[in-house]
Amino acid sequence: MAQLTFREAIARGVAQEMRRDESVVFLGEDVGAAGGVFKGTVGLFEEFGPVRVRDTPISEQAILGAAMGAAMTGLRPIAEIMFADFFAVCWDIVANEIAKSRYMTNGQVTFPLVIRSGNGGGLRFGAQHSQSVENWAMMIPGLKVVVPSNATDVIGLMAASIRDDDPVIFLEAKALYASKMDVPDGEIVDTLGSAKVLRNGTDATVVALGAMVPKALAAAEELANAGIECTVVDVRSLVPLDTTTILREVSATGRLFTVEENPRLCGWGGELASIVSEEAFYDLDGPIVRITTPHIPLPAADALEDMAIPSVERIVSTVTKSMNS
């Protein structure tokens, strides 16, 4: 057991897989000797060298195109897109090329690749370096979308993503990079498409993702003090989606609250609300409530950003109000 930050867990997860499989290669901007702008790749260049850990020009289409071409010809590339907002400049490669080509070719090609990216706000970077884009990725058929919320999950889900034969968008909450936890020693391999129940309660089920998970847990703690016992589910993977766990936990409490960092429209919680309405409607004791960032670009000022992204206080007040109405 060692205490590890979220950012250190990324390098550990990648290194774990690079050691066991020579076909795993890594590319991106400043990922080599520099160790990544968020220091998520520290030590990889030193251990695996410049042939397996390659710096690229600032050319996101080239980075992801190269990852795709390499994946369809025998490698298991991991590509880094520094900030998830930058997906917008290479989205053709993601949405039209990587996601569609297996289906279009009737299964002739596979894309065992991982695109990891720093996602979301909380660092006061302003609108072009802060958006939470998991809903962009979730809506594209052919992409798996993984969003870990703690260091142990980072390692296990990274390993599972690298070993998976499908393209995985691996979104790392920037706000969590510095968070720490005790991580077990040895190899960690998790399962994609498995949500995790982090806390059990009887009154309401709070489903959260990425950086919203620790906030949901903190809110559940406060709510318990006020007499509202919440189940907290960490979604962990939007595609594949563990609807079995989520439906079970929602049916058990009769209430669903989603906590989403993405802007309101077409956030993952909307899809979840739809599934629960269709398949567990008669288990519900009250309305499904979504707690999201409002439908705005994220502001830079700390005071404004804190108002925009769901906070522990907003989760507590929203759940309390809804449960008491």
Binding site: S59, Q61, G65, A66, G69, D92, E97, V109
Partner: peptide
């Protein structure tokens, strides 16, 4: 024949990736 691509220019970077794979392997 590793694909015919209908978004102008998209396959140039993808061809780079296949070439990288050949170079690496």
């Amino acid at each position: 024949v590793m694909g015919s691509y209908a978004i102008i220019g998209a396959h140039l970077p993808i061809a780079c990736g296949a070439a990288w794979s050949a170079q690496y392997r």
